[in-house]
């Protein structure tokens, strides 16, 4: 399946958010995920199914003004 992850095309096997984070080697604990502009709460990381063409944003805190 092909996803757009943080604006980049990724060919992945994962079908859930948690599996995607594992497959792409995300190591940090403090991150937040949205799929197609909808926030996926941490409690739903195993539940929400990803589909071909989904746009996934994976964000963390950063410096800001």
């Amino acid at each position: 399946m092909v996803l757009m992850v943080n604006g980049e095309r990724q060919e992945v096997a994962a079908t859930t958010v948690r599996a995607l984070l594992g497959e792409l080697d995300y190591e940090g604990d403090f991150l937040v995920v949205a799929v197609n502009h909808d926030v996926v709460k941490r409690a739903q990381w195993d539940e929400i199914e990803l589909h071909d063409g989904d746009r996934v944003e994976i964000l963390t805190p950063r410096q800001g003004g």
Partner: peptide, 22 residues
Amino acid sequence: VTVSLRREAGGGKAGDAFWRIV
């Protein structure tokens, strides 16, 4: 204090490191 949200790359820990300080 104000902070932002930015894309984190796989394997990256920039967000974690920043967040620990703030």
